[in-house]
């Protein structure tokens, strides 16, 4: 289980990007984090990944405190961030360099197959389309079999069609080993298609505003009326989170948070 206990982050320039964010996320759960720009979503993800240290509060994975990048936690960024000097296959195998060569080759081959890029194994990253490159990034993050996979707006640079394709693809891959997924997104559709639970954040300082359970069976039909209902409730919550006149619901927030002059 991943536990976030009052995680706060104040940047050196004084910006309070994250204030006492608490959540408990079960193994295998899919979480979508949504919220206005600058409400600390990336900051939160980077704290969980151990890339930046929280100013206070702790992130614990199975009772192990996370303070630096951890083998059980993988991250996928908005850009694929492939290493341009490595072939597609070597990029995918980047995180398992300590394994014996034969085992590595086998895992990479399987991952390539799994993301549908077997024919691109020897290609250079520059020869891939945006969607293909992001699929390689997903494969690279999944090959070491992390227990938690963090995704920071992974599909936001892609066109709507490719995005849908990759969302389905991600669910497919998730079903293999069922890691915990924490996905930051601006796309309500994406949140409702993927997540078991949507966390809505609000800015200044970044904090948790609302949680919405998406009780829909998978695979989810994007056109069903129930899907629309969940979408509407996420949208409503998102609207309220951006409205300064709406007080915080979460009682754990400090006093004064609800003042709205």
């Amino acid at each position: 289980m991943l536990a976030l206990d009052r995680v706060s982050k104040t940047y050196p320039n004084g910006v309070e990007a994250l204030a006492r964010f608490s959540a408990e996320i079960g193994q295998g759960e899919i979480i979508a984090i949504i919220g206005g720009s600058g409400c600390g979503k990336s900051t939160l993800l980077r704290a969980i990944a151990g890339l930046d240290r929280a100013s206070s509060g702790t992130v614990t994975l199975d009772s192990e405190v996370i303070a630096s990048p951890h083998a059980k936690i993988g991250i996928i960024f908005q850009e694929p961030r492939l290493l341009p000097w490595l072939s597609v296959a070597d990029n995918i195998g980047f995180g398992i360099a300590d394994l014996p060569a034969s085992e590595r080759r086998e895992k990479v081959a399987r991952a390539l197959e799994r993301v549908g890029l077997a024919d691109k194994a020897r290609a250079w990253p520059r020869e891939l389309s945006g969607g293909q490159a992001q699929r390689v990034a997903i494969a690279r993050a999944l090959v070491p079999q992390p227990e938690v996979l963090l995704l920071d707006e992974p599909f936001s640079a892609l066109d709507a069609f490719t995005r849908r394709d990759l969302q389905d693809h991600l669910l497919d891959l998730w079903a293999d080993t069922r890691p915990t997924l924490i996905l930051v997104t601006h796309d309500v559709d994406e949140a409702v298609v993927l997540a078991d639970r949507v966390l809505v954040m609000r800015p200044r300082p970044g904090r948790l505003f609302d949680q919405i359970e998406i009780n829909l069976t998978r695979p989810r039909d994007r056109n069903s009326p129930l899907f629309e209902t969940f979408k509407r409730s996420v949208l409503t919550s998102l609207d309220r989170s951006l409205d300064r006149n709406v007080p915080d619901r979460d009682a754990t927030q400090g006093p004064g948070q609800a003042m709205w002059w």
């Binding site: 890339l51 990048p69 951890h70 993988g74 850009e79 961030r81 290493l83 980047f94 995180g95």
Partner: peptide, 23 residues
Amino acid sequence: KIVEVGRTFRLSGFAMIRRILLP
């Protein structure tokens, strides 16, 4: 951003130089 990729895979100082900085 690419150095950060090295960090997420927990490359040590030397491995970071060999696998990220040098190339």
